[in-house]
Simulated assay, not measured.
Amino acid sequence: MGAKWLWRHYLLRSLALLSCLINLAGSAMLAVLVVHSAEVLRLSPFGYGAAGLPGRGSVLASRFAPMLARRLGREGALVATPS
């Protein structure tokens, strides 16, 4: 029933299909990235995992963001952290 309603709604149908295509393209890119890093860049499994460390650091830093914002204020926290 919901899919039928969505199919008749032009704007939401277009957004849902576009979102689906974007997710498909992103997943395909990540799948190719694994092969590219192994065959072209000659990264070991450890090297491939280490390449994702900046993203993990951002997640870890988000844990301390509220404390930093309380101490320095929002503007001060933005100035104090590297971007």
Rank of each mutant, 00 (worst) to 15 (best):
A16E: 00
L41Q: 11
S14E: 08
A69E: 15
N23C: 11
V35L: 09
R42V: 04
L17N: 05
L21H: 01
G47V: 01
A28Y: 09
A28D: 07
V34G: 13
V40L: 05
E39C: 10
V59F: 15
M67H: 07
A28K: 12
I22C: 02
G57Y: 01
L68V: 11
V34N: 07
L12S: 09
L43Y: 15
G57C: 02
Y10L: 11
G47T: 07
F46A: 12
R56M: 14
N23S: 12
R63Y: 04
L15I: 10
A25C: 09
R42F: 03
G57A: 13
E39I: 09
L68G: 00
V34F: 14
G47S: 08
R13Q: 11
R56V: 15
L12M: 13
G52H: 05
L12E: 10
L11S: 03
V59Q: 10
S19I: 03
R56K: 11
L12W: 13
P66C: 02
A38T: 08
L11I: 15
R42E: 05
F64P: 04
Y10S: 13
L41I: 04
S62G: 14
G57S: 03
P45W: 15
L68P: 00
S27V: 10
L18W: 15
M67D: 09
A50P: 05
V59I: 14
H9R: 04
A38G: 04
G49Y: 13
L60A: 13
P54F: 04
L17H: 03
A69G: 02
R13Y: 03
G26M: 08
P66A: 02
S14W: 09
R63K: 02
V40P: 00
V34R: 07
R63T: 00
V35H: 14
E39L: 12
S19P: 00
E39P: 00
V34Y: 08
H9G: 07
S62A: 14
A16R: 01
I22H: 03
V40I: 02
V32H: 05
A50F: 15
F46L: 15
L15Y: 07
A65D: 08
A16H: 01
F64Q: 07
A65G: 00
L68K: 04
R8L: 11
R13C: 01
G55R: 03
Y48H: 09
V32S: 09
L43P: 01
L18R: 15
F64Y: 11
P45D: 06
M67R: 09
V35W: 15
L30D: 11
V32Y: 13
R56T: 07
I22P: 01
L41K: 06
G49L: 13
V35N: 01
G49P: 01
A65R: 06
L60M: 12
R63V: 03
L30P: 06
F64R: 05
P54H: 04
G57Q: 12
L60P: 06
N23G: 05
A69I: 06
S37W: 10
A69K: 06
I22A: 03
R56A: 09
